[in-house]
Simulated assay, not measured.
Amino acid sequence: MSDEWHPPAGSWASSAARRRNMQAIRSRDTKPEQLIRRLVHAQGLRYRVAAKPLPDLRRTADMVFRPAKVAVFIDGCYWHGCPEHYVPPRTNPGYWSDKVARNIARDRDTDRRLQEAGWLVLRFWEHMPAGECVTEITRVVKERRRDGTQSSVGRTA
């Protein structure tokens, strides 16, 4: 038996190195998320991290402000198809491009479901300046708290 690594049958990983690289990608607690959370916390706002805004929806937001009904997502440029920075993959492009397209469709479905339930969805790209994101989050959450979550302000990046 050889010590060389072989991908399991049907695996998307084309090599051991690629597999290690893909496994190292974080789905939560990324540097942009941590920075924005730290700055929002410094503004005196409290929130849930990686929480489900709706109990019956199997999706989590990066930051959830329950009383204000605000869900914040910090989307990675590659995984969520940033119009500025997404570069189609060269290796196994069919699989990865389809995956990103499914992620985008799921994001739009999540937005729609949350909005129908009275939530405000804020989406920011990972490349956006943290200070701008924090200013928008702070403004919207404070406004919705003051107005009793009836405000419809906000934006999707």
Rank of each mutant, 00 (worst) to 15 (best):
A130E: 12
R66C: 00
F124K: 05
E136L: 14
E132W: 08
R59Y: 00
R102M: 09
A71K: 07
I36G: 11
P53Q: 10
V141A: 11
W119Y: 11
L35V: 15
C82A: 08
M63T: 11
V134P: 11
R26I: 12
T135K: 07
R66L: 02
D75F: 03
E126R: 04
G131E: 14
E33M: 01
V134T: 07
G76C: 04
P32H: 11
T110A: 10
L35I: 15
E116R: 14
I104R: 10
R48G: 05
R139V: 06
C133Y: 09
A68Q: 03
P88E: 02
A61L: 01
A130W: 12
Y78K: 04
R58W: 11
R59Q: 09
S97T: 15
G76N: 05
R113P: 05
M22R: 02
I137G: 10
G44T: 12
R113W: 06
E33I: 01
E132V: 11
R18G: 00
T30Y: 04
R48V: 04
L39R: 15
R102W: 06
L39N: 09
S97W: 05
P129R: 14
V87M: 12
V140C: 03
M128H: 07
R102V: 10
R102L: 10
D29A: 02
G76M: 03
I36Y: 08
R46M: 10
Y95H: 00
D111K: 08
L54T: 10
S27D: 00
A130M: 11
A42S: 14
K99T: 07
W96H: 01
E126A: 14
I74R: 01
I25V: 02
R18N: 00
R28V: 03
D29M: 02
E116W: 06
A51N: 08
L45E: 13
V134Q: 09
V64F: 01
K99G: 02
V140Q: 13
A51Y: 04
E84K: 15
G76R: 03
G44R: 14
C82S: 13
E126C: 05
Y47L: 08
R19Q: 03
T110I: 03
G81M: 01
R58C: 06
D75W: 04
V121I: 09
D62S: 00
Y47A: 12
A117W: 04
R37C: 02
G44D: 14
V72N: 01
R102N: 11
P55Y: 07
G94D: 15
T60L: 01
T91N: 13
N103C: 09
L35N: 08
L35H: 10
T138G: 04
W125Q: 05
P32N: 12
T135H: 08
P88D: 02
M128I: 08
H80G: 06
H41F: 14
G44K: 14
L39Q: 15
V64D: 01
W79N: 03
E136W: 06
Y78I: 05
A50R: 03
P129H: 12
S97L: 10
R113T: 10
T135V: 09
A105T: 12
W79Q: 01
V49Y: 03
R108V: 13
